[in-house]
Simulated assay, not measured.
Amino acid sequence: MNANLNWSQIDTVLLDMDGTLLDLHFDWHFWMEVIPQAYASKNKVSLESTKALIHEKIHSQTGTLNWYCLDYWTEALDLPVAQLKRELKHQIQVHPEVMEFLAALKANNKTVVMVTNAHRDSLVIKLEMTEIGDYFDELISAHDFGMPKEDITIWSKIQDVIAYDPQRTLLIDDNLRALQTAKEYGIAYPLCATYVSPKLDKIDPKDFASFEFYSEIMPNES
């Protein structure tokens, strides 16, 4: 389903970060290439076996907060994960049209809230390397609550930080499970961002409304 938003019915916009606002290739390259190379070098094992090992470890944490937690992976892999990520920060890129979209949201007096599963350390690095942070009324990491967006409870927990009316709220995310829990909670406009990177496959939105480029959903200035 293509997105067909009635912006007059939306007061609050909840936005994911990685893949939704930022090119997901940075994280894909980091976890699939950089971390295995660092682990193989440190432990003097083959890169091929290391990739298989790390893929298995990551897969085992899918859907949990550990999947996103730099502290967890630092301990599990005995690697300085946050430091390694910071060394690659120059590769962080914002998607096309994102800055224009964020500016349009503010011009239309929408409340704009980031809700990311990313660890705070990762969030800080990405805010340092982009200008997206200036457009948000609140920046929320799922780690603040000890649960990922895949847990329906998080949407009520967010109300303690910044109150919002689910029936007048838009969530944009590339995580289908997060979109599903938000829908179950009562968020009226769950919207899938299908374009996560020019170097990666598009997300299959399943039954969710979706868009590829922000020009498709750009609100007109009020």
Score class of each variant (00 low, 15 high):
Tyr72Arg: 12
Gly19Thr: 02
Ser8Met: 14
Val161Leu: 12
Val34Lys: 07
Ile154Val: 11
Trp28Val: 13
Ile152Ala: 14
Tyr195Ile: 03
Lys51Met: 12
Ile35Leu: 06
Ile54Thr: 05
Asp207Met: 12
Leu24Tyr: 08
Trp67Leu: 04
Ile35Pro: 02
Ser156Met: 13
Asn43Val: 11
Ile154Lys: 04
His29Phe: 07
Ile132Lys: 01
Tyr195Asp: 01
Asp78Met: 12
Leu176Arg: 08
Glu48Asp: 07
Leu88Gly: 05
Ala182Asn: 02
Gln9Trp: 07
Asn220Lys: 15
Phe208Lys: 06
Ile154Pro: 04
Met218Phe: 07
Leu179Glu: 05
Leu105Tyr: 05
Gly146Ala: 11
Glu150Met: 09
Val45Ile: 15
Leu47Pro: 00
Leu47Ser: 07
Tyr189Met: 12
Ile172Ser: 04
Val81His: 02
Ile132Ala: 01
Glu128Gln: 06
Ala209Ser: 11
His119Met: 02
Met1Ser: 10
Thr62Arg: 12
Leu5Lys: 06
Leu65Ser: 01
Thr194Gly: 04
His59Gly: 09
Thr111Leu: 07
Thr20Pro: 01
Ala103Ile: 07
Lys57Gly: 02
Asn2Phe: 13
Phe211Ala: 05
Glu75Tyr: 06
Val94Phe: 03
Pro166Met: 10
Ser156Lys: 09
Gln83Met: 12
Glu131Lys: 10
Asp201Cys: 12
Asn4Gly: 10
Phe208Met: 09
Asn4Lys: 15
Asn4Trp: 08
Glu212Gly: 10
Tyr164Phe: 05
Asn43Tyr: 14
Leu127Arg: 14
Ala188Tyr: 06
Met1Leu: 14
Asp165Thr: 05
Gln167Ser: 08
Tyr195Asn: 03
Ala142Thr: 11
Leu22Tyr: 02
Lys110Ile: 06
Leu5Gly: 06
Ile158Met: 05
Arg86Lys: 10
Leu123Ala: 09
